[in-house]
Amino acid sequence: MTRSRTPVVAGWFTGEGDGFRLLGTRCSACASVFFPREDAFCRNPGCPGGELCEVPLSRRGRVWSYTDGRYRPPSPYVTDPELPWVPYALIAVELAAERLVVLGQAVPGVSVADLAVGMEVEVVPGVLNEDAETTWTTWHWRPTGVGA
């Protein structure tokens, strides 16, 4: 049986390969950008309130900071307790055009030893976990110096 590929959160990202993008929203009145997306109200306190339209975020940004998780996180993070825990890196990335910082997991195989503050990274599609019916997809950050 093939698993269906389902985003872990609906509407936060779209596309495949080089076309993969995080999705935010932009206020038509004040041009503020929101990620995670705001669909009901603009959160700029000086804004009269505009229409919030979906907008893809920049594909590339620079590392604001990074860390990793050496211990298994608690649920609702999904892991197999039968398997040994493999740490992964987490990267906070500054997007210059949107002037915001987005946190995400690094692609598998990239550890904190491979990272530096200021390094360029790009967003790529990734897999968070799989269960019997579903492959849950997410976004990952990958240093642009690393091949696919």
Binding site: P36, S65, P74, Y77, L90, A92, L103, Q105
Partner: peptide, 21 residues
């Protein structure tokens, strides 16, 4: 809930980010 589900980001994750910064 989402930061745990999507990222496995615990409280020490954020402390680690601040420290590295």
């Amino acid at each position: 809930w989402l930061r745990f589900r999507i990222l496995g980001a615990t409280n020490p994750t954020y402390f680690g980010l601040y420290a590295r910064r």
